[in-house]
Amino acid sequence: MTAKYLAVHNSLFQHIRSEFLSNDKWLTQVKKGLLELCLLNILAREQAHGYELVKRLTAIPGLVVTVGTIYPLLNRLKREGLLKSVIEESTNGPPRIIYHLTPQGRKRVKQINQTWNQINEHVKDLMIEHKG
């Protein structure tokens, strides 16, 4: 039993690690920056728990590098005062942590959306120029 467990375990971690490391660094950085923008925008609409957020974010093609990027991000945003969390007890499993935006978080969403729109517009123009 142990041998089987270890065989699965080792091959699994090797596989995940090689998948993760094969990503282009630049792309990884871009994705991680965008992840924050998307996460804050989801929470600007409604509060959500970790798994819900992960499902919605991983549904965006090519955005998330691994799920492991999302949970630490939630912690950082909480530490920065952009999010707050409450623990909701569950009868059939571990308690859920529900996240919602703070007023400071809402302000930040507005700011980063504005910045993103500006940059995006100019970058698009550049790309068109380049094509032409």
């Binding site: 699994l12 971690f13 596989h15 995940i16 690690r17 993760f20 990884t28 950085q29 991680k32 924050e36 991983t58 590098v65 691994t66 799920v67 492991g68 990027t69 949970y71 630490p72 991000l73 950082r76």
Partner: peptide
């Protein structure tokens, strides 16, 4: 496998 390797959690902390 969907959760990713444990080291990706600390790598993401440093990158973010």
């Amino acid at each position: 496998e969907t959760l990713g390797p444990p080291d990706s959690y600390s790598e993401s902390i440093s990158v973010t």
